[in-house]
Amino acid sequence: MPSETPQAEVGPTGCPHRSGPHSAKGSLEKGSPEDKEAKEPLWIRPDAPSRCTWQLGRPASESPHHHTAPAKSPKILPDILKKIGDTPMVRINKIGKKFGLKCELLAKCEFFNAGGSVKDRISLRMIEDAERDGTLKPGDTIIEPTSGNTGIGLALAAAVRGYRCIIVMPEKMSSEKVDVLRALGAEIVRTPTNARFDSPESHVGVAWRLKNEIPNSHILDQYRNASNPLAHYDTTADEILQQCDGKLDMLVASVGTGGTITGIARKLKEKCPGCRIIGVDPEGSILAEPEELNQTEQTTYEVEGIGYDFIPTVLDRTVVDKWFKSNDEEAFTFARMLIAQEGLLCGGSAGSTVAVAVKAAQELQEGQRCVVILPDSVRNYMTKFLSDRWMLQKGFLKEEDLTEKKPWWWHLRVQELGLSAPLTVLPTITCGHTIEILREKGFDQAPVVDEAGVILGMVTLGNMLSSLLAGKVQPSDQVGKVIYKQFKQIRLTDTLGRLSHILEMDHFALVV
């Protein structure tokens, strides 16, 4: 994948999101292997301009796509893939009243899908469409860049269908997702969380590099694949309309690839034109409109599966009536509230959605109805927002919020430890010299600072030695090549209790 991002070429006709291997024109390309080798690009942008032909009021008969309808489940399912879809609609009884809503608040519980998330729908649909058009064949390999849930859905379907599955996901995604993927037989590649989507090191860039190296491999490409919004247009939206008897006044959905909100909203605009569509985008993402909503100094966020630093091709923002931004604290607070007060075992993005819903639905009156999409299960986040310690460490809970008995030293300040200034190293000294210094002084790690004293990161003896043994660096290389740029900081005025929580999850903390 090139470091400079080429513009994806656009073909003359058809839909841009065809499933299957992508040609340089962004659509299915038939021909000899030699032709494909000559024409197939190194990668295709996940934010390529959409060429979708959908228009409100256009006859369904003019759609270029294969459409399906929700099917009634048999008493005995032939395999677990038949437990994807037909998820329950559940009334939220307490939270709406707590925040003064007059309307009825309903939750579409997508964590009841077989793999635990709304992404099971698009995973199965992308595979079925690729099999139907002859792209996927027995023994082929599926590769997908994902925040985890699409990966789980694909790995689940691949396990049943017999495909090899490789999932490329950023490091910030939970260990629970990784464990589930491994249990399903998927191979996992992790990428830096802070890598831009168009960087060769991003999950998108690495996935395309693997595709170019592995024979008979395919990126189904949830960011561009029409099967993504079509899955929701054909099934999720129809289920909502049936469950609500066609009567709903507002739908609120958090947005990642945009397939969920695009597919549902398009069908609702056709069948229930008075329904307002509300999009939820986390602070630090750029999906919301108008652009002024996205202006923030924050560039990272903890909530998973929603928000991006690019506009995915499948996201149709014209069908969203209003956007709201959400933050991590309210997302996790509301997710825990949904679990504790409503018994809905949902993930953090569901918290984002409901946090926005109780604001947006203030305009609705008694007798009206708001539906929220709860995308995934708490299963993926047992060591994250479900953990009091994690919430404390991230600053989303305060010590006084917890009532468990603490040891005698818990409320003492870090400054009472009488710490001395640490050994520091410059980023320009060599790895070999740094190892000598650390061994001589008896230290395992040291902060790396520039000549102005600005902290650049941390270097550890173990990481340097393993990097040297693996051949990633040489003793003569500058130590700046092996620094940890993500590390926890703590102030002298913070409590030892807070430091204790940090050290339970990290090997060190830097006192500043």
Rank of each mutant, 00 (worst) to 15 (best):
Lys269Gln: 08
Pro16Asp: 05
His232Asp: 03
Gly20Ala: 14
Leu241Gln: 05
Ala107Thr: 11
Lys94Phe: 03
Leu230Tyr: 13
Val204Ser: 04
Leu106Cys: 11
Glu201Asn: 05
Ala48His: 09
Lys267Gly: 12
Lys36Pro: 10
Val178His: 02
Leu28Ala: 10
Glu40Met: 03
Phe99Gly: 15
Pro46Asn: 02
Asp129Val: 10
Glu37Ser: 14
Phe112Thr: 06
Pro78Ile: 06
Thr260Asp: 02
Pro138Glu: 08
Lys267Val: 11
Ile142Cys: 05
Pro229Cys: 05
Trp54Lys: 06
Asp198Thr: 06
Arg132Thr: 10
Ile167Glu: 07
Arg161Phe: 07
Lys97Ile: 15
Cys244Leu: 05
Ala226Glu: 09
Val160Asp: 02
Thr5Val: 02
Pro2Asp: 13
Thr262Gly: 08
Ile240Val: 06
Gly115Thr: 08
Phe99Gln: 06
Ala157Asn: 08
Pro74Glu: 11
Thr146Ser: 04
Arg209His: 13
Pro70Tyr: 03
Glu201Met: 05
Pro170Val: 03
Tyr233His: 09
Ile84Arg: 07
Glu187Ala: 02
Pro6Cys: 07
His67Asn: 04
Thr13Tyr: 02
Gly263Leu: 00
Leu81Cys: 07
Lys137Gly: 07
Gln222Met: 01
Thr141His: 07
Pro46Lys: 02
Asp35Arg: 09
His65Phe: 00
Ala107Arg: 03
Ala130Lys: 00
Glu171Thr: 06
Cys52Val: 04
Ser202Arg: 04
Ser174Asn: 04
Pro12Asp: 05
Gly20Pro: 09
Gly263Ser: 00
Met89Trp: 00
Val178Cys: 07
Gly246Pro: 07
Asp198Ser: 08
His66Ile: 11
Ser3Gln: 09
Ile167Asp: 07
Asp198Gly: 07
Ile76Leu: 13
Trp43Cys: 15
Asp133Pro: 10
Leu241His: 07
Arg161Ala: 09
Leu268His: 00
Tyr163Thr: 00
Phe197Gln: 07
Arg121Lys: 05
Gly263Phe: 01
Ala38Ile: 04
Asp221Arg: 01
Glu9Asn: 10
Arg125Phe: 13
Lys267Glu: 09
Gly258Pro: 00
Phe197Lys: 08
Leu241Ser: 04
Gly139Trp: 07
Ser202Gln: 07
Leu136Thr: 06
Phe99Trp: 12
Cys109Thr: 05
Thr150Ile: 04
Leu77Thr: 03
Ala130Arg: 08
His232Tyr: 07
Glu4Gln: 15
